[in-house]
Amino acid sequence: MTTDETVEKILRTYAAITVVGASAASHKPAHYVPAHMQDHGWRIVPVNPRGGTILGEPVFASLADVPEPGLVDVFRPSEQTPDVARQAVAAGATALWLQLGIASAEARRIAEDAGLLYVEDRCLIVEQRRTGLTAPRAA
Rank of each mutant, 00 (worst) to 15 (best):
K9S: 14
E112Q: 15
P49H: 04
N48Y: 03
Y14K: 06
E57G: 11
E68Y: 05
S62E: 05
D121T: 02
R130G: 01
T134I: 08
Y32T: 09
Q87P: 05
P67I: 03
R50K: 15
H31L: 06
A15K: 09
A24M: 05
W42Q: 01
E5T: 10
E120D: 14
D113E: 15
Q128R: 05
I110N: 02
A64S: 13
V20Q: 07
L116V: 06
A85C: 13
V119K: 13
A105L: 09
A138G: 06
I17C: 08
R108L: 10
M37K: 01
D83L: 02
L116N: 08
V45E: 03
I17R: 00
G41A: 14
A138N: 09
H31E: 08
R86G: 03
N48M: 06
H27N: 14
V74W: 13
F60K: 13
L100I: 02
P136L: 07
P67A: 05
Y32F: 12
P34N: 06
Q38G: 02
A114I: 11
P58D: 14
G21V: 01
G52D: 13
L133V: 06
I17M: 15
A88K: 05
A93T: 02
A138I: 05
P58A: 01
T53K: 11
L98S: 13
E57Y: 04
V33C: 09
H31I: 08
A139H: 13
T53E: 15
P69D: 10
A139Y: 04
V33D: 08
Q80R: 10
H27M: 12
T134C: 08
L11S: 00
A61S: 13
A61W: 03
A30I: 07
V45C: 02
A61R: 15
V126Q: 14
A88T: 03
Y118E: 09
A61I: 03
G52S: 08
G51T: 00
D65E: 13
H40M: 12
I44S: 09
R76L: 04
R86L: 01
W42F: 11
V59I: 11
A15W: 04
L11Q: 05
E120N: 05
A24L: 05
S23C: 12
G51C: 12
V66H: 02
L96Q: 07
A139D: 14
D73G: 05
A88V: 06
W97L: 00
Y118G: 11
V72L: 14
E112G: 08
R122T: 07
S26M: 11
A25W: 00
G41P: 02
V66C: 04
V59W: 09
H27Q: 12
A16W: 00
T53S: 09
D73V: 03
L11H: 03
I102A: 01
R86S: 11
I125D: 04
A22T: 03
A105H: 09
L117F: 04
R12Q: 12
